[in-house]
Design a protein around this nucleic acid. Sequence first.
DNA 1: CGATCTGTTGACACTGCTCAATAGGAGTGG
DNA 2: CCACTCCTATTGAGCAGTGTCAACAGATCG
Lengths: 236, 236
Amino acid sequence: MPAAPALGHGRARCTTCMMRNICMAASLEAGEMARLDSVVQGWRSVRQGERLYRAGDPFRSLYAVRAGSFKTVVAPERGKETISGFYMAGDSIGMDGVCKETHNCDAIALEDSVVCVIPFHLLEALCREIKPLQRQLHKMFSAEIVRESRQMMLLGNMSAEQRVAAFLLNVSARYRERGYSATSFVLRMTREDIGSFLGVTLETVSRTLSKFQQEGLLTVQGKTIELLNLDALDAR
Amino acid sequence: MPAAPALGHGRARCTTCMMRNICMAASLEAGEMARLDSVVQGWRSVRQGERLYRAGDPFRSLYAVRAGSFKTVVAPERGKETISGFYMAGDSIGMDGVCKETHNCDAIALEDSVVCVIPFHLLEALCREIKPLQRQLHKMFSAEIVRESRQMMLLGNMSAEQRVAAFLLNVSARYRERGYSATSFVLRMTREDIGSFLGVTLETVSRTLSKFQQEGLLTVQGKTIELLNLDALDAR
DNA sequence: CGATCTGTTGACACTGCTCAATAGGAGTGG
DNA sequence: CCACTCCTATTGAGCAGTGTCAACAGATCG
């Protein structure tokens, strides 16, 4: 059956969402949050490996990750595709689509995931009424710019070891923000994904992790990581 | 004399500005453009080598480059500083400052330049009233995100030759957009700046330009470039 | 017109890529 | 539940593209 995208029709309930403090709803008062709720079209489930959207698709909505995680993949006309970001619950994706009203990358679920669908024209309308929401949206745009310029620094200047260390610390910090362990977690992406994101080969990622393990900075077992010495990683 | 920043006090006159079609005013009607004019605080001159703002400065305004050009420099706690972008007349800078209300990089004039100063809280207020302006601001944010993700692709995947070729073609296209020659121009930045932006050393930039010249793709004389074969450059 | 900054070119070293072989894990169907 | 397959990860060896260091030339600016 060529099913329509699975959309939840229950109300989004930002007010009870675990992610409300790091999501679009951050800094809104209860009444405002309810109005944001009302423009959220619903939820959409995306199975592992499925695409939430593809490069070239018309842009209509932003998506807030409610559960699960995604990677975004940019594919140039010629040349290899590259992973431009990893996103977990509480992050928003799709902002790259605004400027040409067309998505600029593929968003692929790294595990079975759920997103809130936020039609952009409704969000814009609401931002014209609710100043804190407008400010929050602008901050989210800006934060994405800053995140990317950090990544550019990483890609332009840092050694393979530094890149892997920075990546692990970044993942660690994001788990911590979300209330999970900062030192013990399971990576949802492959070595190839990590390598693509960091601008190195998957072999280099693997070797570097092994080396860090030998040096006692962490333990690796496949996708399971335990960080043993955050400071030493940071000193790379 | 510890002069206050040089602010022009004449009205900004978007309506007569050469850059109105690629700037924030793009897609506005005359009446709307006049209202944008009214929130532009004025002009500020920045001499070559001077900073428009520094990382850590409180964020208050966006800046539209009216004449001249800038580079933005990100300096991490540890490690080398990196050039994250080059901006010419018609481009806007400062959007990285919104998310933490603090500028995230230094913006340095590559030549004597003039910018329009646009206080952000006034711009936001106007965006709540003028839908096309709101949309344009969102597009500018998004375009910056897309530009950076292209740069990440370049830094992550491409060889030194490809990076230099892509850089030249990008500069070329931007001159063309602005009505200047796409094949003959003067670079305003040093080899070191280019290298930093492209994630290679200045020597590699220099060598690559020499190689392209030997192959008949272009001629170089210091900062003066003439592109002889855009297609061949693109084929790198 | 000297001092300093910027650009060019060469020689060499080293990081990280390529290619290759092997092992471990996850999912599938009998 | 096991056997099979496919995907992912690990590790090794050799090489190539860039970085590093150095010398010099050419611009630019006071």
